[in-house]
Nucleic acid binder design. Structure first.
Length: 361
DNA sequence: TAAGCGTGGAC
DNA sequence: TGTCCAAGCTT
């Protein structure tokens, strides 16, 4: 492509070797790097989608401990999978992993395929993840373009294409391909760019160009325009929703309902929630025989595309239409998203306090 | 193509 | 504080 034309074959090789040497000397010791397999690489890459390394580490360790092989995942219960993903976000990732595992059992003898083309056709695996698995675990000479790579290469090339656009990502897969070393080193090269993006060529604030092994070939650095890259079109404002959360409790148990199979927090467990704001009078009118109605601290949860502004009431009442669960059952088997966590904690505290006062009565 | 889909860290 | 945005994919 034209953006790489000004880089001679010699410069490309120098940049390659500088990046590989830097990576081999400075990369972090991460759990999925200690032992490499297609399964481990796949699990880590799915978890790392739009998610920070520090957040992923404990989830990765637990997931591999509970489901050490792809065959284990293929037969795992949805409830277990949601529990293993609880708090990590983007829950369709783990449902797609199970679908993918099932396909691999049927079609590939219980193993992930190793080629980029086959990986791309599997549920939950797009161009980035396929490139990462194929190059890291399969030694295939293919690019893996994520947000780090877009940022690092936009700076190296001083390229002002809008990285939000799909066509730009396609272009970058071609730009990066021209820089890839031989197949055996492609995985390290891809990881090197990502590691550089995470540790040196950072997204927030000024990048640490003094520590950068490829600063000598970076066009943005030469121009002093590092922070103008990458170019990213503005995202749409979030909409705001008002809700009232009803936490029904009865005899030390808490009512939870499984959310619909489609949409936000699909399939997870949550509380009854109105689609508009209710005040105490409306809750009292709905539960006239409640033994107790306690207003809880309000809470705002910010998702990527919507904000939930929630006020909440704890209602002590046995509602025949609700299903109540013990704390043990909830903690072992039911995944509650972070959005509801503060209300769950409040209910737990209330139950514990009530138990104490009941005991002394 | 653009919107839907979570969460938390950094500034 | 609010804003940005991180190892993206699906529809």
């Amino acid at each position: 492509m034209e953006e790489t034309n000004a880089f001679s074959e010699t410069v490309i090789q120098q940049l390659q070797q500088a990046l590989l040497a830097w990576y081999r000397a400075h990369h972090r010791d991460l759990p999925w790097r200690r032992e490499v397999s297609a399964y481990r690489t796949w699990v880590s890459e799915i978890m790392l989608q739009q998610t920070r390394v520090e957040a992923v580490i404990p989830y990765f360790e637990r997931f591999l401990h509970v489901l050490p092989t792809l065959a284990d995942l293929a037969v795992a219960d949805d409830a277990l999978l949601h529990k293993l993903w609880e708090g990590l976000g983007y829950y369709s990732r783990v449902r797609n992993m199970k679908k993918c595992a099932e396909v691999c059992v049927e079609r590939y003898g219980g193993r992930l395929p190793s080629s980029y083309e086959e990986l791309c056709r599997l549920p939950g695996i797009g161009p980035y993840t396929a490139g990462a698995i194929a190059s890291i675990a399969g030694q295939e000479r293919v690019a893996a373009v994520d947000g780090n790579v877009l940022r690092v290469f936009s700076r190296i090339l001083a390229n002002r294409e809008d990285i939000v656009k799909e066509v730009t990502k396609k272009h970058y897969r071609q730009y990066v391909s021209a820089f890839l070393p031989e197949a055996a080193d492609a995985g390290d090269f891809n990881q090197a760019i990502m590691e550089l993006g995470a540790m040196v060529c950072s997204p927030n604030g000024a990048p640490s160009c003094a520590q950068c092994p490829v600063a000598a070939w970076c066009r943005a650095h030469a121009q002093g325009t590092e922070q103008e890259f990458p170019v990213r079109s503005a995202k749409k404002a979030r909409r705001i929703e008002e809700h009232t959360v009803l936490v029904l409790v009865d005899q030390g148990r808490i009512a939870l309902q499984q959310r619909p199979a489609k949409g936000l927090l699909a399939g997870l467990h949550g509380f009854a929630m109105s689609d508009e704001r209710w005040e105490r009078q409306q809750v009292e009118a709905r539960y006239p025989h409640a033994r107790n109605i306690v207003e809880l601290h309000p809470h705002t949860h910010v998702f990527s595309h919507v904000e939930w502004h929630m006020n909440a009431f704890l209602v002590e009442e046995r509602d025949p239409l609700a299903s109540y669960h013990s704390l043990e059952e909830i903690e072992e088997n039911m995944a509650i998203p972070t959005a509801f966590r503060p209300f769950y904690e409040a209910a737990r505290t209330w139950i514990r306090m009530k138990g104490a006062t009941d005991d002394t009565r």
